[in-house]
């Protein structure tokens, strides 16, 4: 049955081999091709190639800009680091200065205080010497009185000069 069918088709002829339709097909095909060619070459292809070029341009510009920004960020970071280091040195310097000034003040105050203490000590020592001297004198007087009284008690009239000499002699030793 299939062979009969094929035979029949061959008999009827393939529409592809019906030469009477060739001029029609070729005519319309040429029109279609020319239209497609004109549309592509005049409008579509220049437009698409323009878009593609523009896009690759945009991409490379953006990449360059990103590179630039990155560079600037690195620079800014370096500047910041430097400022930080400077600030740190500056603060150290100010601290040192303040410390030195305070030390100087302290030293001056200490010296002054030492001086005061020294004068006061000297004065006190003078006082003490004075007091001691006067005490010695008083002791001598008391000793003379006591010696005279002792001598008088023993019944002898004591020579004033001898008593003074004896007391002075004893006080020396």
């Amino acid at each position: 049955m299939a062979t009969a069918d094929v035979a029949q088709e061959v008999e009827a002829g393939m529409p592809q081999l019906d030469f009477s339709t060739f001029p029609n097909q070729i005519f319309w095909l040429l029109i279609a091709l020319v239209v497609i060619y004109l549309v592509l070459s005049r409008i579509a292809l220049p437009r698409i190639s323009g878009v593609l070029a523009e896009r690759s341009g945009t991409i490379s510009n953006d990449l360059a800009a990103a590179e630039d920004f990155k560079l600037r960020a690195t620079e800014a970071e370096a500047v910041y680091e430097k400022a930080l280091a400077d600030a740190r040195t500056e603060s150290n310097r100010i601290g040192d200065e303040a410390r030195a000034v305070a030390q100087a003040d302290l030293d001056a105050a200490l010296a002054e205080a030492d001086a005061k203490i020294a004068t006061q000590t000297a004065a006190a020592e003078a006082n003490i010497a004075e007091i001691r001297a006067s005490a010695t004198d008083n002791v001598a007087i008391v000793a003379k009185d006591v010696a005279q009284a002792l001598v008088a008690a023993m019944g002898t009239n004591a020579d004033q000069v001898a008593i003074d000499a004896a007391v002075a002699n004893r006080m020396k030793g």
């Binding site: 009477s20 001029p23 029609n24 319309w28």
Partner: peptide, 9 residues
């Protein structure tokens, strides 16, 4: 089908 006839082609 002439050469200018609009066909299914």
């Amino acid at each position: 089908v002439h050469w200018y006839t609009p066909t299914n082609v």
